[in-house]
């Protein structure tokens, strides 16, 4: 449904999106995951023809956005809930958008009803809470009854009730057979909403897979071992295909369970001082996968890196 081919965007000397290719299947919720500043919003703006790609292209149903006739009827998008004139009423905002794509004025009241804003439709949008603005943005996206929906960080800043509402809403849209492409910097959020994931970091594609695969890989557990006979254990681990990284006073092993490592130690008559399975959180794992690609590091990152092996990222990519 949505195809990006070597999409590249350069701002002066700075590369925001770098040779990015991915595809989004129709009729499912696809998460667009990446740390802040990874190029998610820029990519979405290029999808909507707002920003011109420096190179490559992105098409929706085989067409560039700018080639679509009455685009709101094919693609609904919520990039920023704040893109509304504060002194214009919610209804007037939707009325001009409907008019521009020859959508019936009746549809304006329909979508206001869907998002539950009917009662405040005549109030100025500037007085809306963040949750209400977000709903207005979603109403605008739904206006043309589009097949494809793009949402950029829709749950940012919302309270739990709002988050739950959006989550259920996106699933409902996908159940109706629509293609939903939603960006987020929170893997935990995406794990709950999306069936597929496109993960990017520093403008480059990190992975494209189903959410299940990604989460399984991201939470891929590691085992920490300490032993006075590491020189004997190490080749044995290599033989079974485990990835071994040296840690302060031992090894961090991934790709082999603690049971398996224990058995290997027994076979090779190795004394173990420590055999400790380590389960990383989804967040930590995500940070490791995209770790190299975070643009501006904070000191916090180094603490996390100490907890988990730095070399781990290379094994999962």
């Amino acid at each position: 449904m949505i195809e990006a081919h070597s999409l590249t965007k350069r701002y002066g000397g700075k590369v925001a999106v770098d040779d990015l290719s991915f595809s989004v299947k129709s009729g499912r919720v696809t998460g667009f995951l990446g740390p802040n500043g990874a190029g998610k919003s820029t990519t979405m703006r290029m999808m909507l023809g707002l920003d011109n790609p420096t190179g490559g292209s992105v098409t929706i149903g085989g067409k560039r956005y700018t080639e679509l006739h009455h685009p709101l009827r094919t693609v609904g998008a919520l990039l920023e809930a704040s893109w509304v004139h504060p002194n214009r009423s919610a209804r007037a905002h939707l009325a001009w958008m409907a008019k521009s794509n020859k959508i019936s004025p009746k549809r304006v009241d329909e979508v206001l009803d869907i998002v539950g804003l009917s009662e405040v439709a005549s109030k100025r949008a500037g007085g809306f809470s963040l949750g209400m603005s977000q709903r207005l943005g979603i109403a605008a996206a739904l206006l043309g009854d589009p097949e494809v929906l793009l949402f950029d960080e829709p749950v940012n800043g919302l309270d739990p009730e709002g988050i739950l509402w959006i989550r259920k809403f996106m699933q409902r849209l996908a159940d109706e057979g629509r293609t939903v492409f939603v960006s987020s910097h929170l893997l935990s959020e995406m794990a709950l909403t999306a069936t597929d994931l496109v993960v990017i970091g520093k403008g480059k594609l990190v992975s494209q897979s189903t959410t299940e695969e990604f989460v399984a890989r991201a939470t891929d557990s590691t085992v920490k071992i300490r032993s006075p006979h590491l020189d004997r254990l190490r080749p044995a681990l290599d033989r079974v295909g485990a990835t071994v990284t040296a840690a302060d006073d031992g090894l961090i092993v991934s790709g082999a369970s603690s049971d398996k490592i224990g058995e290997l130690a027994m076979e090779n008559q190795v004394t173990l001082h420590e055999l400790a399975p380590q389960q990383g959180s989804l967040e930590q794992a995500f940070m490791q996968i995209t770790g190299d690609s975070v643009e501006y590091h904070a000191d916090l990152e180094t603490e996390d890196a100490a907890e988990q092996p730095a070399g781990h990222a290379s094994t999962t990519n």
Binding site: G49, L72, A77, E80, P86, N101
Partner: peptide
Amino acid sequence: FGTMRTTFQA
């Protein structure tokens, strides 16, 4: 207010 983007989107 960003409505120019909404306009170009429509």
